[in-house]
Design a protein around this nucleic acid. Structure first.
Lengths: 144, 144
DNA sequence: CGGTATCCCGTGTGATACTG
DNA sequence: CAGTATCACACGGGATACCG
């Protein structure tokens, strides 16, 4: 078996780079337009184009036309379910970073539940819905 | 605010590269020696050295001496708490990959609870311990 | 506004050879 | 076995200029 072929590596190849993650983060924050991304992230336009097109190809995003009254039509980028589900990766990085990379210059980012603004955190749950400690996990590989 | 300074980006800079993630995965699987990593991952020795030293510096790993009877002493790499906690990142990538990047040639990897072998999955829990849907999450940035 | 095209440079990585 | 040293190369990404 080639141990480099695994879902972890494939996933990180697709969404594990700095710019893709930052664009996803901006989208969770509600931004949708090319210009927003460019201004917020100070990414060069050429790279942003490449990243967005790649994310469209991967099915993380969809491009939708919209029109503000009396203006020309524009496009916005919307998250697909595949894109929304990738939030678990961003949140895992976020929680680990918050725990171990505390830097007073960093903005602090937290996750909350939509309606209640109740703080949330990542957990591993077993089949009974009980929380499992990270130290009590095991990875299991099924060869094919 | 520089939006590129955030825990997500800092985290991905430290543990978001292919080799660091693969080494961490090998360690969760129980491997601890230089030679194991090199053979399992077919990584070049020079790169493996660089990666391991970097992970030692970051405090993800510790090097421990051990001795098998009548052999010379050796070193093995052990995960620290910081390293163990990074499993949430690997698991998030794993789950997302398992959901969206199905490839019959890939080995399938799952996570189970140590004692019971009960399957586990990542969830967001709120303060009441209830599971929150990924679509109902919001990121909140506190500027500083 | 939302891109595309071109150039240049730094970094990550593999291959190879050498060491205690 | 567990590295270190050197080289060569591909690729990501920034800067810049141009376009509909």
């Amino acid at each position: 078996m080639d141990r480099q072929l695994c879902p972890v590596v494939n996933a990180v190849k697709l969404i594990g780079d700095k710019w893709t993650l930052l664009i996803l983060r901006e989208m969770y924050l509600g931004f949708r337009k090319f210009d927003d991304f460019q201004k917020n992230l100070t990414i060069s336009k050429s790279v942003l184009t490449v990243k967005l097109n790649r994310m469209l190809e991967l099915g993380l995003l969809e491009k939708k036309e919209y029109q503000v009254e009396k203006q020309r039509s524009r496009y916005e980028y919307c998250l697909t379910d595949k894109g929304i589900d990738s939030s678990k990766v961003i949140i895992a990085l976020l929680e680990w970073g918050n725990s171990y990379l505390v830097n007073p210059k960093n903005p602090s980012i937290t996750t909350v539940e939509k309606g209640t603004f109740s703080a949330t955190r990542l957990c591993m749950n077993n089949e009974q819905g009980e929380v499992v400690d990270w130290k009590d996990l095991r990875l299991v590989i099924q060869e094919k």
